[in-house]
Amino acid sequence: MKRNVLPGLPLSLGITLFYVGLIVVLPLAALVFKAASLGPAEYWAIVSSPRAVASYRVTVLSALVATAFNLVFGLALAWVLVRYRFPGRRIVDAIVDLPFALPTAVAGIALTTLFASNGWFGSLLAPLGIKVAYTPLGIMVAMCFTSLPFIVRTVQPVLEDLDPALEEAAQSLGGSDSAIFVRVILPLLMPALLAGLSLSFARSLGEFGAIIFIAGNQPMETEITALLAFIRLEEYDYQAAAAIASVLLITAFLMLAATNLLQARALRYTARS
């Protein structure tokens, strides 16, 4: 056997694999197993029922919008935190993690209170004819809130490590600010942005606690997929719950695979010849 300088490989690998198996793989396998106990026709009937399809639509659309919003503002936030020194920077930096730390139900209640038609924001938006609470817009707001840290925290370290000489070089070659951003900075941030995007999107797809308070949960309109699975559980219809949950699982897998491919493409310059 090849001798390895680093000690502890068998033990640490063993513990890690055991842990991943116990905590991650086993529950997912149980879920798939449960869903698979349905016949194909039955499974298809459950996952393609109008109510389920409506829940996919509102969940995916809201998650897409929330992720797009966080892409722009998360990047801007990371940029500001890395590039500029201003009073209170460290506080802002700490606040970014708050959606991670806060129980999502608390966030949901707080957002509902703010955006209800008599709340601080809701009462300002109501005269404009914009309703946030109990509409898909509310779902987006809740998703934005809970998934904001992902993009900031994935982009921030890469931005910090970006060699300022690259931008200076681009300037000395006559590049305008926008050309430098598009041709130099953005491509170098792309792998981190993609990682942040996929995490942010996955979190939005699966978010539950924050959304159910603000969404209103009208079937066919503002009912998210995770809630539908929960409702089936409440009805002791475990197979249907597992079937609906498996759709979320497959979506998450496909999306992670897709981002990994894109990331590998964005990072192809690091390959050695």
């Binding site: 000489a165 690259l166 070089a169 170098l188 310059y269």
Partner: peptide, 8 residues
């Protein structure tokens, strides 16, 4: 340190 664009 050259400052070549690594992705190009």
């Amino acid at each position: 340190h050259y400052a070549l664009f690594p992705h190009m």
